[in-house]
Nucleic acid binder design. Structure first.
Lengths: 114, 114
DNA sequence: TCAATATATGAATACTTGTTCATATATTAC
DNA sequence: GTAATATATGAACAAGTATTCATATATTGA
């Protein structure tokens, strides 16, 4: 296995030198993993309409309360959504504007309208 | 399970009405899944330095030729990278500027520098 | 304090995905 | 053509993840 292109060799060297730390790479991977399942993406699309409690999220995306609750836990652990208690309910919202921006960029990439 | 907030009910209704199609949601999920593993993220960071053949990608990110090749296949299937043959080598590059933009947004979200 | 209700969680199972090993394909040089 | 080389791929196994079911926790209203 070999390749004579000096440009590639230089790029590979630069890549090794500028590679993000293992820890940063893992956090990044975890964030993308959190939003890489259709069930969780649907929750994010739902929350784009505004904050909602679990009951209404279930109404919006379908599925069981337990499944949605597990999905919300993963999204929250990844820092993609945040939550606050309001009486008996827990209200969820997108964590920040980066989340929507990433979704919209990805949609642009796929030429799909959302 | 219930909730009296009219705002949530309206948001849920809007969410159901504006939910992207199943097919679009699945393509989006597949794209994020492709970039949600540290090994594949490293390949993307490497290719940010410029296009490279498989040999140099292996040099840049480590791992076996077979593993990297499988990872490249997934990235390509997801439309994240593109490839062209150059003699005996196959040269890979990031598919378009959206890819880097998504990476940079996600890094901003995590407050990490790349 | 007690009952009712909204949400969360642990454990088990089923499913998905990654890696490895062996081998196949495609290109070049002879 | 044949040998050598770069890359790709199929199958098998290992590792990780999602969903379900049963149950726990936390809040409210009586």
């Amino acid at each position: 296995m070999d390749c004579a292109e000096d440009r590639h060799a230089l790029a590979a060297k630069a890549a090794r030198e500028n590679m993000p730390s293992q820890e940063e790479t893992e956090r990044l991977a975890a964030s993308f993993k959190a939003i890489s399942e259709t069930a969780r993406l649907k929750i994010l699309f739902a929350l784009r309409q505004g904050e909602m409690c679990v009951y209404h999220i279930v109404e919006a995306v379908g599925g069981t309360q337990s499944a949605v609750s597990h999905q919300l836990r993963l999204l929250k652990a990844a820092g993609v959504v945040r939550s606050r208690r309001d009486g008996q309910n827990i209200v969820y919202a997108l964590a920040d504007s980066h989340v929507v921006a990433v979704l919209e960029l990805a949609c642009a990439h796929l030429h799909c309208k959302i």
